[in-house]
């Protein structure tokens, strides 16, 4: 397997270089407003610390969220152009899955008590997904989600399904995203779909629209 550059801006700005299950360098800044400023230096920094030239990178993986749109897009745009610039493959992965991959080894999950991963969706809502464990290839098994709900709605949703999840506050890291891609490449589940997971339509109202609310959320 080759060198993987992972980029995730679903929360802060996180960039990592991973090779065969080993983390070579990672750069994490938790600021949720400065992705456009930080992304270039973050990539430069991990390459420099790992002593890797851009053309030695074998693949790029981008975190697709779900996440607040504006910041998320910076990472996806950067991953897309880095891959295009070097001429290497670009993969996409669900950011919540990467969090689950990092959190699952430390928790005891069961059918009624899966792992719940949430992320701030702004507007008093959260993105969420449920995981039942890790499969033989080392991938997290997502059993529900990703979705977006108000916290109270999410709790109702879980109670109604008699689910009492284990929660985690592990933050997203690009290293986890890269490990996730490695597992997906082994299992043949790696995806080259890199579209942002918005889960909400763009806010826009048609002028003089007579159809009520034009968009949800």
């Amino acid at each position: 397997m080759s060198l993987i550059l992972a980029i995730d801006t679903s929360f802060g700005t996180s960039v990592a270089l991973v090779e065969n299950g080993k983390l070579l360098a990672e750069h994490n800044v938790l600021d949720t407003m400065k992705h456009a400023e930080l992304i270039g230096s973050a990539i430069t920094d991990v390459l420099a610390r790992a002593g890797v030239k851009p053309n030695q990178v074998g693949a790029v993986v981008a975190g697709r969220g779900p996440a607040p749109f504006t910041g998320l897009r910076v990472g996806l745009a950067a991953a897309t152009m880095f891959a295009a610039g070097v001429g290497i493959k670009l993969y996409g992965a669900v950011s919540l899955d990467a969090i689950a991959l990092a959190a699952l080894p430390a928790v005891d999950v069961s059918k009624d008590a899966p792992l719940l991963v949430t992320a701030d969706a702004r507007r008093k809502e959260v993105y969420w997904a449920l995981y039942s464990g890790i499969n033989a290839q080392g991938e997290p098994i997502r059993v529900d989600g990703p979705g977006v709900l108000k916290p109270a709605e999410l709790e109702d949703y879980l109670v109604n399904r008699n689910v009492h999840p284990i929660r985690t506050d592990i933050a997203i890291s690009a290293a986890s995203l890269a490990f996730l891609l490695e597992a997906q490449l082994r299992s043949g589940n790696a995806s080259q779909e890199v579209g942002a997971l918005y889960l909400r339509a763009a806010d826009a109202v048609e002028p003089k629209a007579r159809i009520g609310k034009a968009v949800s959320g």
């Binding site: 456009a36 270039g40 851009p54 897009r73 950067a78 991953a79 152009m81 610039g85």
Partner: peptide, 10 residues
């Protein structure tokens, strides 16, 4: 974001 990554990559 795109331009910065392209600059670093190249």
């Amino acid at each position: 974001g795109a331009a910065k990554a392209l600059a670093v990559a190249s």
